[in-house]
Simulated scan of single mutants.
Amino acid sequence: MTFVERGQLDDIQLGGIFVAGLSASTMVADGCPPDRHDTIGTLVCLSGMAAMMYVARSN
């Protein structure tokens, strides 16, 4: 059994897409680019998503 079950991959992918989309839509709606903390948070979330998906696929 892996850390992430196969059925949870869809949830992980949607979470990563949601965070990236939220960051982009905030930039469009507010008219200002995200600050350093927004960018770091988005990258941490997306790298965690990528790591969980890689672990689930490699086992």
Rank of each mutant, 00 (worst) to 15 (best):
C45Q: 07
F18W: 08
T42Q: 05
S58I: 15
M1L: 15
I40D: 06
A56E: 12
S47C: 03
R57T: 10
V28A: 15
M1S: 15
V28Q: 14
G31C: 12
T2V: 08
G41W: 01
T26R: 13
P34K: 00
M27T: 12
I12G: 03
N59T: 00
A56R: 12
L9S: 05
V4W: 02
G7F: 14
V55D: 11
G21N: 09
S25C: 12
D30V: 12
A20M: 05
C32M: 14
V44H: 11
P34C: 00
M1H: 15
G15A: 05
F3R: 02
Q8L: 08
M27I: 11
I17Y: 09
F18V: 03
G41I: 01
D38N: 11
P34G: 01
H37N: 10
I12A: 08
Q13P: 04
M27V: 14
S47M: 01
G21T: 10
D38S: 13
G16T: 12
D38Q: 10
P33T: 00
A24Y: 06
S47N: 02
L43N: 10
I40V: 10
H37Q: 12
T42K: 07
Q13V: 10
C32R: 14
D11E: 09
D35T: 00
F18K: 07
L46H: 03
Y54S: 03
A51I: 11
T39M: 00
L22W: 01
S23H: 01
L14P: 00
Q13L: 11
H37V: 11
A50K: 13
M52Q: 07
F18L: 08
A50Y: 09
A56T: 11
Q8V: 04
D38K: 13
M53E: 14
G48S: 01
A20I: 02
C45L: 04
F18D: 06
M49S: 07
R6N: 15
D11C: 04
V55P: 04
V44W: 05
Q13S: 07
G48C: 02
Q8M: 07
A24C: 03
A56F: 10
A24H: 05
N59V: 02
T42I: 07
L14E: 05
T2K: 08
M53F: 15
S23Y: 00
M52H: 06
T2Y: 05
G31W: 10
A24E: 04
V55K: 12
D30Q: 13
M49Y: 06
Q8W: 03
D11M: 06
E5T: 06
T42Y: 02
F3Y: 01
L46E: 05
G7I: 14
T2S: 10
C32K: 14
V44P: 02
L43Q: 11
E5C: 05
S25W: 09
M53H: 15
I12T: 05
A51W: 09
V4I: 03
R36S: 13
M52W: 06
D11L: 08
